[in-house]
Design a protein around this nucleic acid. Structure first.
Lengths: 333, 333
DNA sequence: TTGAAAGCGCTAACAT
DNA sequence: ATGTTAGCGCTTTCAA
């Protein structure tokens, strides 16, 4: 790594002062066209790039956003991350990424580290356990996907989305519908379960059924769905004719178990997922799902942080989901 | 964001000089136990965290790695990214992420920006088009997955992996084996195709067949596999009894098309993928694939950069693949 | 062992 | 319009 060319090198070679060079670099208006051209010329010649550390030290900020996400192996988060980085880049920002690995207690540490690095804000997708988040440095923070009280929150309307999914299943004629929920400590799981219950509770009561009988909790990943489906699709007693899974990954796990059990989808079992991750459209059969407007969520969170607006309660944004009807649902036999 | 506590605040409150505080923070030995304790105490009280920008400006480096990756929506890259960040974090480093969106011409710009931010090194997964990469700032660079001449290279042995896959198919008794290759300008695609041909060329020659007849190129993603499979599995002429896809995503796309065409896998068509991404184990049937040792690759690249060792040709590492036998292969009917 | 002080490269306030 | 200069917060000589 050769010694960087500094603003002084540029100033000397261009025969101007460092102040002028700085003004040119930062687009300050009061520089004559001639000097500006000369400076720009020298900058190009020398390949000068302002040192970000020096700028950061001086300005107290450095056009960087932090993103803390549980696990990029979850395709939903990976897609979210991709969208955030894209938007940030468009606006001239860089992104520091840190994964919390679903460890709620590591989040504070991660955020503190980002604060130390002078990020202008951080997008946090809290781990399932996180009930509150320590933010002693007062970093600008936007919470995405999973709500944390007291912080601006950007997410899909999980509950309404789940309601749509349940209603769709009901409209198809299903009555025995199981809900494959997420971890019990998960905000998202609770919301989606609530949406499901908004639709199902009255019907269940009418039929004299215990709501608990049609709910099962499992991790949001493929494996969780696959395992839970083993219980759901057991041969004892009446099987559900439809399953609403709280994530596409779970739903794909359900598809997998159904395949193993020779239960054809959608003929003998309808399945609805949630999220609309990329593979949902590729599995066989294609997954019907409640789609989250991922790009809108990512852009909103990013813009909120970059915009410099006050991050109060009013900054929260909830986006509606949309059902994407594909091949995993049909009326019950 | 309240005004940060600085090293001077700590020094004043602890009744020592800033130099001493700095020495304590950096674990310099020559500080008496008493002062050290006092300083540590004050640091804890004040919640002091050294300003990364100031450290960076002074030291010229800042315990940060850059990662440039084409697209996190590709699960292989997302998993790679996750592993890199994990390893970096273990070693006390942060990660700046930038996606190149498969635009070869944006990579230089991205790297220059990372250089400006004083990263200690960058992990680059070049876009398919990239033949060389401009690195005017002399950033420490490790190229992963796709080779670029003149740079240290960490990757799986694509060619040998493809050879294993082809041999496996042959050992099962397949003779009409198609290769679903990647984009023609892709290093990885070329390597894997070459491995496939190492095994198949002699057999093809023996049978008097044109090698080109069993090769088709497509993007590495799901859609690419699905579309290419439509041609591969067309009803005109003899269909291949097996397909070697150059990525798991393609392979899953093939599975999808086979399903649509009512071609049962593995009975009437065997499929082998490459990479062993997480979903490979979840699709139905489970995908047999040549697994890349992803963690080893990520760790090696990360350690190379952090280690500070010279990044010459000798720094390259090639890791062997391993066949993961699951459910998509069987002897031909 | 410890304190004092010189910058690292830049921006912005001030002077001209 | 432009040059000069004082720091931003830290690490690291250099002296004591």
């Amino acid at each position: 790594m050769k010694p960087r060319t500094t603003i002084r090198d540029v100033a000397r070679k261009a025969g101007v002062s460092v102040g002028t060079v700085s003004r040119v670099v930062n687009g300050h208006p009061s520089v004559t066209e001639a000097k500006k051209r000369a400076v720009l010329q020298v900058i190009a010649e020398l390949g000068f790039r302002p040192d970000a550390a020096a700028q950061s030290l001086r300005r107290g900020t450095n056009r960087t956003l932090g993103v803390v996400i549980p696990d990029l192996r979850n395709p939903f988060f990976a897609e979210l991350m991709q969208h955030i980085e894209l938007r940030a880049k468009e606006r001239g920002y860089s992104v520091l990424f840190a994964s919390s690995d679903e460890q709620a207690d590591s989040e504070a540490e991660l955020i503190a580290n980002l604060a130390r690095r002078k990020v202008e804000g951080v997008v946090l997708v809290p781990s399932n356990r996180a009930e509150r988040i320590a933010n002693p440095d007062g970093v600008r923070l936007v919470v995405v996907d999973r709500r944390i009280a007291g912080h601006p929150f950007v997410a899909a309307d999980h509950r309404a989305g789940a309601r749509m999914a349940a209603e769709y299943l009901v409209s198809l004629g299903h009555r025995r519908i199981a809900c494959l929920s997420g971890p019990e400590n998960s905000f998202v799981a609770r919301e989606r379960l609530a949406g499901f219950m908004d639709v199902m509770a009255p019907r269940l009561a009418e039929a004299g059924l215990d709501p608990a009988s049609c709910i099962i909790s499992a991790p949001f990943d493929y494996e969780g769905g696959r395992e839970a489906a083993k219980a759901l699709l057991a041969d004892d007693g009446p099987r559900p004719t439809a399953v609403f899974a709280c994530s596409d990954q779970q739903a794909i796990g359900v598809l997998r178990t159904a395949f193993d059990r020779r239960i054809t989808v959608p003929d003998r079992l309808s399945v609805v997922g949630f999220d609309d991750i990329l593979i949902s459209d590729l599995v066989a059969p294609r997954l019907t799902t409640a789609a989250q407007p991922l790009a809108a969520i990512a852009n909103c969170a990013t813009d909120l942080l970059i915009g410099g607006e006050p991050l109060d309660a009013a900054a929260s944004h909830i986006f509606p989901c949309a059902m994407v009807l594909r091949e995993t649902c049909a009326p019950p036999l």
